[in-house]
Each structure stands twice: as C-alpha cells, then as structure tokens.
Design a protein around this nucleic acid. Structure first.
Length: 448
RNA sequence: GACCCCAUGGUCUAGCGGUUAGGACACCACCCUUUCACGGUGGUAGCCCGGGUUCGAUUCCCGGUGGGGUCGCCA
C-alpha cells in the first residue's frame, strides 16, 4: 500500500519553524517511500483564519521547496485544488463531520451534553505504537479521570479539532501521521476515535520538538521562530532545509551538508531521534554560508540583485558587466544576502559615507600626502586592473617607506567608506579609474 | 498536581557491552593575509546521579534528578 501523509496547519498568520520541520519530515517520508504528501488547511476555528494567513503558509512551503501532491492551489478555501480527496480546507468539509457525528450518536458512542456533543472516551489506558517513540501506554491524568469524555462538537455546532482531524485523516486515507511530540497525549483520544469509527488508526510518528537555545518552547516571538524571518534575512532555502533536517535526524558518517535528493534517499522514520533539539542560529548561518559560497555565480548574482533592490539600490542603473563583476567580488564573503547592501553598497551609489571611527583614524594630516601620492600613482595606471593596482600601491608604499597596510586602509575607506569589504584591488578595478580617482580626491579634501 | 516523552562537550550529533568516546557549529592559540572572511594547524570542553545485570557499562534494567510536552466548547 502506498503511503499517504499530510501536513495539516492551522492558519495562524505565520509558519512556525517547528511546523515547517514537521512538514519537511512528512514530505521527506512521502518522497522516500514514493507516497503522497497532502496539504490540508485546518481552518475550522475562528475569524483569525484569514486568506492572508493561509497565504503565509503556502508561500513558506513554496519557498522551502516543499511541494504537495494533493491540496489547495490557492488560499481561497472555495478555490481550485488538486487531488480527489478534497476539499482540503476543513471549513469546506462540514458535511463529512456532521455525518460522522451522527454515526457516533446513533451507535451510542457520543452524547449531547449542555448543547455540545461529547465523545465517550475509554477509561482504560490507551496503547500507542509509535514509529519514533516506541510503545507508549497513555493513562488518564487526574483531571481527565474526573471526566474522560471530551467535546467533539461545540454548542454552537462547530466540530472540534480532535474530531475533524481524525475524520479527515480517515477520509483522506492517511497512512502515517507524522507530527510534533506535543500531540502525543492527544493521540490517545484520536486512536479511540478511529476505533469508534470501526477502523484501524494510521501509524503514528511523533517527532521531537525544536526548542529555544535556552531550552524553552519556541513561540512566535522568539528569534528564528517563523519562516518569514529567513526569507527576510536573506537565507538560502536549501540551507534552512538542510539545517532543519539535522534537528532530530542524522545522515550518519559525519555528514552534514548534503543535497535534498540524498536526504530523501537516507531519511526514514525509525532513525528519527526522540529527544528535543535546541535551535542554533550560528550553525544555521554557517551552513547558509556554505551554500552561498558554493552556489552558481548566476544564482548568486540573481539573489544579490534582488537583495540590493530590496535595500533601495537599483543595480539596473549600472552596466550589466559592471554589476556582474561587482557582485563577483562578494561571493564567498557574505554569510547572508542581507549583509550585501552594507558590504558592497558602495558599488551602486556615489553617496559614500565614511565610517566615523575609521575616518578619525585614517583621514589624518599625516596620511594626506601619502594618499595624494597613491592617487597620482593610480592616475598613471593605464590598464586599471587589480594586478597593476596592487603593484602601484606596493610600489608607492615602498617609495614612502611604509608598509602596504598604511595605504590600504585609507584607500579602502576613501573608496568604500568602510573598514572591511571585498578584496581592495579587485574592488578598485571594478569601480574603475574615474570613480576611484574621484573618491580619492574627495577623501583628500577631508584629510587635509 | 496528574499523565506522557526525553537525557553524549555550550549547541547539533555518531556510537548500539570492551573505542585514545568520532564529526560539525561556537570558542581559544598560531599560521596565511591589503581589510573582513576563507583556508591550514593545534587546543579547551562530554557520556546527569545512584543502584543493579555482567569478567566488563556511555551502551541493558530500576530508581532519582533535570528538561520538555499534555491535561479547553484552541489547533
């Protein structure tokens, strides 16, 4: 039998990193087993479920590269979808729930209570066979022992999560429920519901949670908790996905960075860890850097242009060749794309502002004649390439009897406004003689 | 409070009765270097505690401690 798994988020207005990882593990399992990955929107709740909130989820999954075989095509609950087990919005499945509740009622497995409908829960401990955790015997808590039965339809007629979740999994033929460990306690309820409907429950796999660095539960307010953060901060989706895979799972053999195709091949449920993992932004950034420095020049260029544009720097105003060479000097230097405007924005604006601390240190009277000599040397360079520029600078330093660094720092500050950045000689070559001389002249005035 | 899950350096992990306990991030030192990085070399740092089982436990069992989760007419 072919596997069928689903990711069933509630549109809360953000895609939580834990949810994304759950989606990812489901997706990996489906791809690994050659089964189907289904997206179902659990929007039974309140008015907080807006189309915009669904869009956030759809966009987040798209960005991560997680595609679904069945599910909605748009954020419109009544809009088009793919798959023959729809609709995939719970708000459109009300009739199914009503039918199932009637069945329970008529079999005496549920009953009305103060206008709501409650399910007759079994009193004995429920045994769950979990693919990750193992066999779990779930006993009633003291609170539940008071009244083990739980509401499946609210008094206003709205079916409740436990009911809709189970009915949908049943109707959609879900074979494996892969979800966060925070659902493990709920699973006892769900297993009993399946039994009441006279069917075998799906197989369960409760995966560990992603915690904050301090070990507390990650809420939407915490750093890195929502996928939008990564989109906004200039992360590469493959890096985020790769990192997420390593939280609660390992490819073994001391391997960490590996293509998704290989992860799909290696991934399986029994190897998922049981303990929670803490989120480490530093490691994610390192991994992102690994992806950024090894990606193709074309992709780097495309993402870079987009990032500059976001920061208000229009690279289209410059010759394509200039833009390309400028961006090339940044490859392998930045960890996140959002560092780019600060790192290399000087290529795309004539309004260079000097780092005040550095200016105080480098633009001093003592450096004025040195910079002047360097400027004159650069003016003599006919073929304005990095090798010639390096030779010119070093030669000047030699004549001045100073180390290269004495010229390098002021020159960098004069042309970029920064104390660090791409290779100086390469950046000068890209900037070109006119710009370099002009910027040097401006700095010369400042230094005098 | 009750119920459930979990436990290898600061963090992510490999390990599945006998290992100098391996890798990665981070950190420190040195080298390289025009800046910042990259890279290279070396280094600090770990099996939560207590009982068992065993010739021998990081590894198996029990208890404790610690962490997390769940006990809604939220999902």
């Amino acid at each position: 039998m072919s596997t069928r798994v689903r990711f069933a988020p509630s549109p809360t207005g953000f895609l939580h990193i834990g949810g994304a990882r759950t989606a990812l593990f489901n997706w990996l399992f489906a791809r690994h087993t050659g089964g189907k990955f289904i997206l179902r929107i659990e929007d039974t709740d309140t008015a907080r479920n807006t189309q915009a909130a669904v869009d956030v989820i759809l966009r987040g999954l798209h960005w991560l590269g997680i595609d679904w075989d069945e599910g909605p095509l748009t954020s419109d609950a009544t809009g088009p979808d793919k798959g023959d087990r729809g609709p995939y919005y719970q708000s459109q499945r009300r009739q199914r729930y009503d039918e199932r509740v009637q069945a329970l009622l008529s079999h005496g497995l549920a009953y009305e209570h103060e206008g709501a409908i409650k399910f007759q829960m079994q009193r004995e401990p429920v045994v769950i066979h979990d693919l990750v955790v193992g066999e779990v015997k779930r006993d009633l808590t003291d609170r539940e022992a008071q009244d083990p039965d739980f509401v499946i339809v609210r008094s206003d007629g709205q079916p409740v999560f436990h009911l809709t979740n189970v009915v949908d999994d049943l109707d959609m033929g879900i074979t494996h429920v892969i979800r966060g460990e925070d659902h493990l306690s709920n699973t006892a309820k769900h297993v009993c519901l399946f039994k009441a409907f006279g069917v075998q429950p799906p197989k369960y796999a409760h995966i560990p949670l992603i915690l904050n660095p301090d070990g507390t539960k990650m809420s939407k307010r915490d750093v890195g908790a929502t996928i939008q953060t990564y989109i906004d901060d200039g992360f590469v989706p493959e890096a985020v996905v790769n990192y997420l895979c390593l939280l609660g799972w390992s490819p073994k053999n001391n391997r960490e960075i590996l293509p998704i195709s290989e992860i799909i091949e290696l991934f399986d449920l029994p190897q998922v860890l049981r303990h929670n993992a803490r989120f480490d932004m530093e490691k994610l950034k390192w991994m992102n850097f690994e992806y950024v420095r090894t990606m193709s020049d074309d992709r780097f260029h495309e993402l870079a242009v987009h990032t500059f544009a976001k920061a208000g720097l229009d690279t289209n105003q410059y010759p394509l060749d200039y833009v390309k060479k400028a961006i090339d000097t940044c490859k392998g230097k930045i960890k996140l794309f959002n560092e780019l405007p600060g790192y290399a924005g000087f290529y795309f604006t004539e309004a260079v502002t000097y780092d005040p601390e550095a200016a105080k240190k480098d633009f001093v009277p003592e450096n004025q004649p040195r910079l002047q000599k360097l400027r004159d040397a650069f003016a003599q360079v006919k073929d304005f390439n990095y090798a010639a520029l390096e030779a010119a600078l070093k030669n000047t330093a030699g004549e001045l009897g100073v180390k290269a660094g004495v010229l390098v720092h002021p020159a960098r500050l004069a042309t970029t406004g920064k104390t660090s950045g791409p290779s100086l000689y390469h950046l000068l070559e890209v900037l070109g003689k006119d710009r370099v001389l002009a910027r040097l002249d401006r700095a010369l005035q400042r230094a005098s």
